[in-house]
């Protein structure tokens, strides 16, 4: 039967590589496996909802306070909930040896990381964005403020995922990343948080917000372009040590 196995073939250096197909394969694989891992999928969303729901109960249900603090509450909750999901990003793959195989694919690791982190955002960040209008309503946000908030989350959560991936890759060699991961990542999250909540604040005060959106968009572009470089480097080091 082994006669049917392909014979070894020496592949020349200039043969074209299927880049797109490899990226789609990683993206599809991660999304499919993620959808089957209900627990990991639900945890960030449940956490997000619970944190947001605690504020009216714990601080004040007064609509003036909620309208003032609402954007901040939603943003902080989204940030913590992203942080919660980061440790899974590479760890399961590392334990199973799946990460080794990704590092040994001939395609540039940069592109594969881009696909992998995008899949992670689809599974953890996007659900937060989708549920945020509902929670915004609960916090008495309305009209433009509500939609502006959702838009800042749509632009901002991928930034959180991409920056967080750097921390997750760097702490991969440790038995449990825990506090170190937060210490590494949270300072980098602060600008995103400031501009995310600042947008909604400015809007409610009647100030122009296009600049805020432009800045968030610029952060997104920078994170998507540069973070995979850092992640790829960090993964190589972590895997070398593991």
């Amino acid at each position: 039967m082994t006669a049917m196995a392909p014979r070894p073939r020496f592949i020349a250096a200039d043969t074209p590589l299927p880049l797109g197909r490899a990226m789609v394969a990683i993206f599809a694989r991660d999304v499919r496996a993620g959808l089957r891992q209900r627990q990991d999928l639900l945890n960030p969303v449940v956490f997000f909802v619970m944190v947001v729901a605690l504020f009216p109960l714990g601080v004040s249900p007064e609509s003036g306070f909620l309208r003032q603090a609402g954007p901040g509450i939603l943003w902080v909750a989204a940030l913590l909930s992203t942080l919660l999901s980061l440790d899974h990003l590479f760890r399961h793959d590392h334990d199973q040896g799946v990460l080794d195989q990704m590092l040994l694919q001939p395609q540039p690791l940069y592109l594969l990381v881009l696909a992998k982190v995008s899949a992670h955002w689809m599974l953890t960040g996007l659900p937060l964005v989708l549920i945020s209008p509902l929670l915004g309503l609960m916090l008495q946000l309305e009209g433009n403020s509500l939609w502006a908030l959702c838009l800042t989350l749509l632009l901002g959560t991928p930034v959180l995922s991409f920056i967080g991936a750097i921390g997750a890759a760097l702490t991969l060699g440790l038995r449990s990343a825990g506090v170190l991961l937060s210490l590494l990542v949270i300072p980098l999250y602060i600008p995103v948080l400031i501009f995310g909540t600042g947008t909604v604040m400015s809007l409610s005060e009647g100030l122009p917000v296009s600049g805020h959106f432009a800045l968030l968009g610029a952060m997104l572009v920078l994170a998507v372009l540069l973070a995979p470089l850092a992640v790829a480097g960090a993964l190589r080091i972590s895997v070398s040590n593991g």
């Binding site: 020496f10 592949i11 250096a13 399961h92 199973q96 040896g97 195989q101 040994l104």
Partner: peptide, 15 residues
């Protein structure tokens, strides 16, 4: 890498 196949002691498959 185009000419290499590596199988580690961890199977490298997603459960």
């Amino acid at each position: 890498l185009r000419n290499l196949l590596y199988l580690g002691h961890r199977p490298g498959i997603k459960p």
